[in-house]
């Protein structure tokens, strides 16, 4: 009996992002036209930008770092890709590559600041935010950049390749990236090393991981993912503006919230990209459901705040209970466990 109860609670915590999504979907049933092909397709494709940023943020957080520059990096990616295509006249493929390369450079800079200059990642990326923002404004002179009527690739990204499935090309690319990162984290040596870095940096170093190099690569991957996401978003929209997400909820905040709801540990060493993706889907779906049920934006931010606060509160409580065990003698802990069934 006891065992079963414990099982349930841990299950809720592990799969909380799925449960969150489920609750949102149940409410979706109350609103008209939620479960239509068109709506689902539009919802899924609008998760794309947040997912790419979320991937970057999650990977960094697993390695025990915070990358605050992700939001501006995505904006910069969108600006660079459209600038390269429209202003410089390069083909799409090359422009996307350049945007991702810009991301890589910023990521390496972040990594160097964190590993070589030994600045806390929170501070280094905070400073990098200003630098990216300034560079971005200088590049586009404060103007929006658009594709100027060249909607070829835009239409291709929003087309649906498989009938009866509400997936457009943009979402399929996003999904491939999510699966790719999940496999990388779970099944490759480098992926496991990232968990080790976040779990305990010193142990990782003693175990023979080149921790500096791995950290730099992590930051690089994070920024590249964001730049790619921004670039695809820019093409999908047909426009890039330097002020994306300066008012309202910034993309960074959504990515951060989703990462935490997805169960990634802020101290590092724990987390899944897939869970982040699921929570982003849930958040985006929640926005849509709330808008159609309650109609006003005010409730969106209130509810997302409540969900996040609940998650944090719950996690904190669990930790607090665990803390109570610390300081007891091992033989007694066994006794305590026998008694409580924990």
């Amino acid at each position: 009996m006891m065992k079963k109860k414990k099982f349930n609670i841990s299950l809720i915590n592990t799969y909380r992002s799925y449960i969150f999504l489920l609750i949102v979907l149940i409410f979706g049933a109350f609103s008209d036209n939620f479960f239509t092909m068109f709506n689902i397709k539009s919802l899924l494709s609008s998760t794309s930008l947040y997912t790419f940023i979320g991937i970057g943020f999650t990977v960094c957080m697993i390695a025990g770092h915070m990358d605050l520059s992700v939001g501006y990096m995505a904006t910069a990616g969108a600006l660079v890709v459209l600038g390269m295509h429209t202003l410089t006249g390069l083909p799409w493929a090359v422009s996307i590559l350049i945007a991702v390369a810009v991301g890589a450079v910023v990521g390496i800079l972040n990594g160097l600041l964190v590993t070589k200059a030994k600045i806390h990642s929170f501070i280094a990326t905070l400073g990098m935010q200003y630098v990216i923002r300034g560079g971005m404004y200088i590049y586009c002179e404060g103007k929006e950049i658009s594709v100027k009527g060249d909607y070829g690739l835009t239409d291709k990204l929003s087309s649906v390749p498989i009938k009866f499935l509400p997936f457009n090309v943009l979402f399929i690319i996003t999904l491939i990236c999510v699966i790719g990162f999940s496999i990388m984290l779970a099944y490759t040596r480098f992926g496991r090393n990232i968990y080790m870095l976040g779990g305990n940096l010193e142990t990782a170093w003693l175990a023979g991981i080149n921790s500096d190099r791995a950290t730099i690569i992590v930051f690089m991957l994070s920024s590249m993912s964001c730049a790619l996401g921004g670039a695809l978003f820019g093409i999908f929209q047909g426009t890039a503006t330097p002020t994306l997400g300066e008012k309202g909820i910034a993309p960074l905040m959504i990515a951060m919230t989703a990462t935490i709801i997805g169960g990634t540990d802020i101290a590092g060493g724990k987390g899944k990209v897939l869970d982040t993706f699921i929570s982003i889907t849930a958040i985006v779906a929640m926005f849509s459901v709330v808008t159609s049920l309650l109609g006003k934006f005010e409730y969106q931010i209130l509810l997302i705040g409540f969900v996040l606060a609940l998650c944090v509160f719950y996690e904190t409580l669990l930790k607090y209970i665990k803390q109570k065990e610390i300081g007891m003698r091992p033989n007694l802990i066994i006794k305590y466990h026998e008694e409580t069934g924990k």
Binding site: L302, I304, G305, V312
Partner: peptide
Amino acid sequence: LRANPIIWTLAFNMVLSG
């Protein structure tokens, strides 16, 4: 309760804002 300072204050900020 020893909640993570960044995340808790972030969540609380959203709640207050709402």
